[in-house]
């Protein structure tokens, strides 16, 4: 890993939602600030900047990460996915997950929502048949102060059912050995 000078700005380039982006960052600049203020991708929100609230959750090379606990320079060359990348066409149409949140009132002020969506997006990609318990465990890293969570879990389960029904993912019996299937 190259050694970076603390006092100078460095060029950082990575793929954001499939498109190349780049900007200048001091080594201490948080990924969250870089995304929002250098790139202009303001969909990722900051709720605590100490890794508890989950609002700033993004995917880095497919893994979930708090953008407030990552440095911009760490994402050099990475593949970053944020809430802006979830809609199939840049925002005109909602994804199945986003639509489920709308239908079940899974958001009110919407500030924490990007984090919930990004986590569920990764979860349903990696584990389409995740049990409700597992979904809850994954979402326990996110704080929401408006909804009381009940509509969020409803939306998550509805989205999962739609994804499975539409064949967006294969049925477990077809593709997965039985022991991998969640209850």
């Amino acid at each position: 890993m190259p050694r970076l000078n603390a006092d100078t700005r460095h060029r950082v380039a990575f793929a954001l939602n499939g498109r190349p982006v780049s900007g200048q960052a001091e080594p201490r600049m948080l990924l969250s600030d870089f995304l929002r203020h250098e790139i202009g991708a303001t969909g990722t929100h900051l709720g605590c900047e100490h890794g508890v609230c989950g609002a700033c959750t993004v995917q880095i090379d497919g893994g979930l990460a708090r953008a407030c606990l990552a440095l911009a320079v760490q994402t050099e060359g990475a593949d970053v996915r944020t809430v802006e990348g979830l809609s199939p066409d840049g925002g005109a149409t909602l994804s199945i997950l986003q639509e489920a949140f709308r239908e079940h009132h899974g958001l009110q002020c919407g500030f924490c929502t990007p984090g919930f969506l990004v986590t569920l997006d990764a979860l349903f990609r990696d584990d389409p048949h995740a049990s409700e318990t597992h979904i809850r465990e994954m979402l326990s890293g996110h704080l929401c102060r408006c909804t009381g969570y009940a509509p969020i879990i409803k939306a998550a389960l509805a989205a999962q059912a739609t994804l499975l029904a539409r064949g967006a993912v294969a049925h477990p019996d077809d593709t997965m050995p039985e022991e991998d299937v969640h209850a």
């Binding site: 809430v83 709308r102 500030f111």
Partner: peptide
């Protein structure tokens, strides 16, 4: 469905920051 939601769900909110 709320008219507010499409923007908020796609990262197009207009919060102060």
């Amino acid at each position: 469905p709320r008219v507010e939601d499409a923007a908020l769900l796609t990262g197009r909110g207009r919060y102060i920051d």
